[in-house]
C-alpha cells in the first residue's frame, strides 16, 4: 500500500457539513440551561412578592447574597423558611437551625448579603422572627454594624403612582 493510497488521494472529495462544533455548542447550551434552571428554582421559589405603589426601591445588587424565602400556603400563612433547599420551621428550634446555617455561610465571606423574599400575604408575626434570626446570625458572624438585608419586592411596570 503506497502512501498515496493510504492518504486516499484520488478518492472523491467528502462533502457534508461538519456537525461536531454545533453538537459541541448545543450540549454546552443544554448544560447551561440545566444549571441555570436548577439555581433559579433553588433561590427564586415562586411566591407572591409585595408590590407597593410608587416603589422607592433599587435594582437588586450584584453583591454575593444568600436568599431566604418565606413562602405562604393557599391561605397566605407561612409554612416555614426555605433557605438553601432546606425548609426550616418557624418555631424556636427551626429558627435556631436557620441562624446557625446562615451564620456559618456569613463567616465564609465578609461581603455576603441576605435577600429576604417573603410572600405578601404572610402575617408580620411570621416575618419578624425570621428577621430576628438573621440579625442574630449577623451578630454571631461578627457583623458588628448590622447585617445588610435586602427586602425583595416585585416591581410591576403597569402599576400606577401613589396618587
Amino acid at each position: 500500500m503506497s502512501v498515496a493510497e493510504r492518504l486516499g488521494v484520488g478518492r472523491p472529495v467528502k462533502t457534508g457539513a461538519n456537525l461536531t462544533p454545533m453538537i459541541d455548542m448545543t450540549f454546552l447550551l443544554v448544560v447551561f440551561f440545566i444549571l441555570v434552571s436548577r439555581i433559579t428554582s433553588v433561590e427564586q421559589i415562586p411566591l407572591q412578592l409585595p408590590s407597593p405603589f410608587d416603589p422607592a426601591s433599587n435594582p437588586a445588587p450584584e453583591a454575593p447574597r444568600l436568599v431566604v424565602n418565606i413562602p405562604g400556603d393557599d391561605e397566605g400563612l407561612a409554612t416555614g423558611v426555605v433557605y438553601d433547599q432546606q425548609e426550616y420551621d418557624l418555631d424556636d428550634d427551626g429558627l435556631d437551625l436557620l441562624t446557625g446555617a446562615v451564620a456559618a455561610r456569613l463567616e465564609t465571606m465578609p461581603e455576603l448579603q441576605v435577600n429576604l423574599r417573603a410572600d405578601r400575604r404572610v402575617p408580620y408575626e411570621s416575618v419578624a422572627p425570621v428577621m430576628d434570626a438573621l440579625a442574630a446570625a449577623g451578630a454571631r458572624a461578627g457583623r458588628t454594624d448590622g447585617l445588610r438585608v435586602n427586602l425583595v419586592i416585585q416591581v410591576d411596570p403597569d402599576a400606577g403612582g401613589i396618587d
Partner: peptide, 21 residues
C-alpha cells in the same frame, strides 16, 4: 438569557439589621 431572565422585575430595599436581643 443571563442578562434578562434572572429575577425579572424584582427589586429590593437595603436595610441594616442590628442585633435586637
Amino acid at each position: 438569557i443571563v442578562g434578562t431572565s434572572f429575577a425579572m422585575g424584582e427589586q429590593s430595599y437595603r436595610m441594616d439589621l442590628p442585633e435586637r436581643e
